[in-house]
Design a protein around this nucleic acid. Sequence first.
DNA 1: ATTTGCTCAGCTC
DNA 2: GAGCTGAGCAAAT
Length: 118
Amino acid sequence: MIVWDVDKGVFRRANTSDYREALYILLQLIEPGYVTSYGDLAKLLGVNPRFIGYLLKTNDKPIVIPCHRVVRSNGDLGGYSLGGKEFKKKLLMLEGVVFSGERVSRDCLKSLYSLLAR
DNA sequence: ATTTGCTCAGCTC
DNA sequence: GAGCTGAGCAAAT
């Protein structure tokens, strides 16, 4: 990802903060009751899926980042540093996400592309 | 359901 | 610099 550096007036490679910023904006787009995957976000930002996990794991700037709405592409929960998977599952169920066993139902996995193409 | 190979930014030395 | 580690993925088995 390339960004415009306002201060220096040049284009430069995105740094971690830039990715974080972009990631958080994208997270805002996910409606309660739906989830997206690490890979989906990764494609959008042009980074490795594992990097998304890294971003979410490390910087939890405010506590109010909906990182619980990000799961694995196969429906598995993935991780959650605050309270573990169980807590993550509870949060999602509270928002109306449907589970089949320990996995998120396919219907609740929303592609961010469809949200952006409106 | 499980294994396999790929990936790449950040961290540690 | 070199090597290791992931809140992952997709394809093959």
